[in-house]
């Protein structure tokens, strides 16, 4: 009887462990897949206060492709292209443009419709940049 109880406990524990591990990997895989989209600039958030982008930033976007290349448009200027690394352990996207310049952006949150990034350079350091899948 005791052996049966112990076995049940062991099986439950192993099951729970496997489920946790799978859900962890699955959520990170989900995050990875969710980023493959065209993200339009929606707003800037500074100390919890939302700010609308300027007129010339109205159609700014980043397109993250599945082949790990990206296209971005900033302040209405010409499109920029490059490659990116999605580092799930570091929770950031590292964008490398055609000149080899690197921009790191921490992923604050991601869902099917919205992406919140915090760029790792001084001017934008304390600003959350919010993107949506629709303008």
């Amino acid at each position: 009887m005791k052996t049966v109880k112990t076995s049940a406990w062991t099986i439950s524990f192993i099951g729970l462990f496997i489920m946790t591990a799978i859900s962890d990997v699955y959520s990170q895989q989900g995050e990875k897949d969710a980023i493959f989209n065209k993200w339009y600039l929606d707003s800037y958030v500074v100390e919890g206060k939302k700010h609308t982008p300027s007129h010339k930033e109205k159609e700014d976007y980043i397109l993250f492709r599945e082949d790990m290349t990206f296209v971005s448009k900033t302040e209405g200027k010409e499109e920029e292209e490059g490659t990116y690394i999605l580092n799930t352990n570091g929770a950031y996207v590292l964008m490398i443009d055609e000149n080899g310049e690197k921009i790191k952006a921490y992923i604050i949150s991601i869902s099917k419709q919205s992406l919140h990034l915090k760029y790792d350079f001084n001017v934008l350091k304390d600003i959350e940049v919010h993107y949506n899948t629709e303008i």
């Binding site: 790990m68 490659t83 690394i85 580092n87 799930t88 352990n89 570091g90 929770a91 950031y92 590292l94």
Partner: peptide
């Protein structure tokens, strides 16, 4: 610990790319 994982992941992606 997280930064060590992130560094290892970066190295793998860099090699794959």
């Amino acid at each position: 610990e997280q930064r060590v994982r992130a560094a290892l992941e970066y190295c793998l992606w860099s090699f794959i790319n």
